[in-house]
């Protein structure tokens, strides 16, 4: 249903309505978020869409980078402490600093979403290197021994034994990374990158004299719902990929 405020806008095109111009919902309490959502539906859904992609894609990219790094940390034991420590240190860089620095590093525009995607990929790598390394090492000794004794090459052992067995551990790390990304993306919103974070900036700007809660509450609720949905997706994928774990509790 098109917004009552802009009946001429065709569906799918985000209306260029700036919050101060649009008539505000009367209710400034947290419950006013429903009215606020109705009034700014297209804009908010557009932000949600961006937010979803910015949360999910960096985790996938981060996992693809963390897999070989984690494998190296496992394969050459001496590399484990420096790699895991370095990865951990990456996480201490303040996100806002990284968002601001990225355009200089990448040569992109300041508000290009790619900046956020790359920065969040860095954080995902930081979280996942250790998880991958530990996951690959979680193969029970007798299983690893049997695999070697049966003549699996190193590569076959990795692909047929170590990686499948590491799935539960890696998936647990991916869940953390996805949820953490949902909140980090919101930070990027405050510098103007289109996503749900802009709801907080808007709420702050509109809180003149007394607090204006509707956009803030809406932002929090949508972020939580998004995190829950993405988390569920990871859990579901893990469930499908590990029938052997279900068998243990079953029958």
């Amino acid at each position: 249903m098109p917004s009552p405020v802009s009946p001429h806008v065709s569906p799918g095109v985000a209306p260029r309505v700036l919050p101060p111009v649009a008539p505000l919902a009367q209710d400034s309490s947290p419950l006013g978020m429903f009215g606020y959502f109705n009034d700014h539906r297209d804009e908010v859904l557009n932000w949600l869409w961006y937010h979803t992609w910015l949360s999910a894609v960096p985790v996938v990219a981060g996992l693809l980078i963390a897999l070989p790094l984690g494998w190296v940390a496992r394969r050459y034991r001496w590399t484990y402490p420096p790699l895991v420590t370095a990865a951990g240190l990456l996480y201490t860089i303040p996100s806002i600093a990284l968002f601001v620095a990225m355009p200089d590093i990448l040569g992109t525009q300041i508000l290009d979403p790619i900046n956020v995607a790359v920065a969040l990929t860095v954080y995902s790598v930081a979280l996942l290197v250790r998880v991958v390394a530990d996951g690959l090492g979680a193969v029970p000794d007798d299983v690893a021994q049997a695999a070697t004794a049966m003549g699996l090459t190193r590569r076959q052992r990795l692909l047929k034994v170590e990686l499948p067995l590491a799935v539960p551990v890696i998936a647990a790390g991916v869940r953390v990374a996805v949820v953490a990304n949902v909140s980090l993306v919101a930070v990027a919103g405050t510098i103007g990158v289109p996503n749900l974070g802009q709801l907080f900036t808007t709420g702050f700007q509109l809180s003149v004299g007394s607090p204006y809660y509707p956009p803030i509450t809406l932002g929090i609720v949508l972020c939580v719902l998004l995190a829950l949905a993405l988390d569920l997706l990871v859990v579901g994928g893990t469930w499908l990929a590990t029938p052997w774990r279900r068998a243990v509790s079953g029958s």
Partner: peptide, 15 residues
């Protein structure tokens, strides 16, 4: 691959 190997806890692939 030409030598069968059996160990204490069987070492079966759990997955």
């Amino acid at each position: 691959r030409g030598i069968g190997y059996v160990i204490q806890h069987a070492g079966l692939f759990p997955h």
